[in-house]
Amino acid sequence: MLADFNFRVIFEYLPLFLTGLRATFLISIVSIALALCTGIIACACRISPARVLKYPAIAYIEIIRSTPLLVQIYFLYFGLPTLGVRIPEIQTGILALMLNSGAYIAEIIRAGINSVDEGQLEAGISSGLNYVQRMRFIILPQALGVTIPPLLGQAIVLVKDSALLSLISVAELTRSGQLMTSERFMPTEAFFTVAFFYMCIYFVLKALAEWSQKKLIFREAY
């Protein structure tokens, strides 16, 4: 069993894994940045009183939340070509991750905004601040602190989700494991190595999330 664990093969394949790791890293960073923009816009529409903005935002968020990411990936992967859109797999994958995480991020931000005490809003109203000023000076700064830990949590989810891109042959970390398995048939070595790298990313992000949670000093003021 594990006694036969072949480290030599892993070292032999290390360049492949490192390339995969780099791809996973880049895909995740680009996707999370795009998802953050998508999420902010979707949230702004979601809480807006204008119905033409609000209802499409609700539909987007609920559809994403109630269907699996893998189905969303296949939808774009098999669906975009039928629309005549031909883009590389990696872009399809990033698009899917962006749309998927964007919906969750929209809800995270909305929860952050809702967590701010209503009295804060009333205090702002009473001193004559307008909607934009209240958002900018009172609500968003307080919401931000509450939002950062779950946003980092979403980043963890996104890194792991990016593994599904291996199924549309994007050359990322999990794909490296699949390639090594098909060439050498040493799945134990291949997938435990893959798992090890994911764990490394996970522990870094988790430590960040816990640190940011402790840094939320302002919440104690109330």
Binding site: K160, A163, S166, T181, P187, F191, Y198, M199, F203
Partner: peptide
Amino acid sequence: RGTPFVVQVFI
């Protein structure tokens, strides 16, 4: 929690 589900399935 630290590894993708698809990797767990493969394992």
